[in-house]
């Protein structure tokens, strides 16, 4: 299969990345060469193979549902590019 420019723009929309129109051609070329490489996998019949979901021979641990941390609002807000005293600030979403 091959990816055309429209498909790439759609995927970029899904990924929330704006794509510079001038770069779409080279991006299309690169992604198609990568997918050509990836599609070697189609040579293999994997109908009877179980997908690998974890490489550890253990299931994920669960912990007690207890609060172990907290009251660190200042620390959390510290790195925000735009904030007020209590909240992250984003462009207006509701009219």
């Amino acid at each position: 299969m091959s990816l055309d420019k429209e498909k790439i723009k759609h995927v970029a929309k899904l990924a929330r990345i704006s794509v510079d129109e001038a770069k779409v051609d080279s991006l299309t070329k690169d992604l198609n060469s990568i997918f050509k490489f990836i599609e070697q996998l189609n040579e293999l019949n994997t109908d009877k193979v179980e997908p690998l979901t974890s490489i550890l021979n253990q299931s994920l641990r669960s912990r007690k549902d207890e609060i172990s941390d907290g009251k660190i609002r200042e620390k959390i807000l510290k790195n925000s590019p735009k904030k007020n005293e209590e909240f992250f600030v984003v462009p207006k979403v509701v009219e």
């Binding site: 929330r16 925000s80 590019p81 735009k82 992250f88 984003v90 462009p91 207006k92 979403v93």
Partner: peptide
């Protein structure tokens, strides 16, 4: 661009940001 790191100054709404 909300909680940490770089944020673009361009864009008219949240999605564009």
């Amino acid at each position: 661009g909300v909680r940490y790191g770089y944020r673009s100054q361009k864009g008219k709404d949240l999605i564009e940001m």
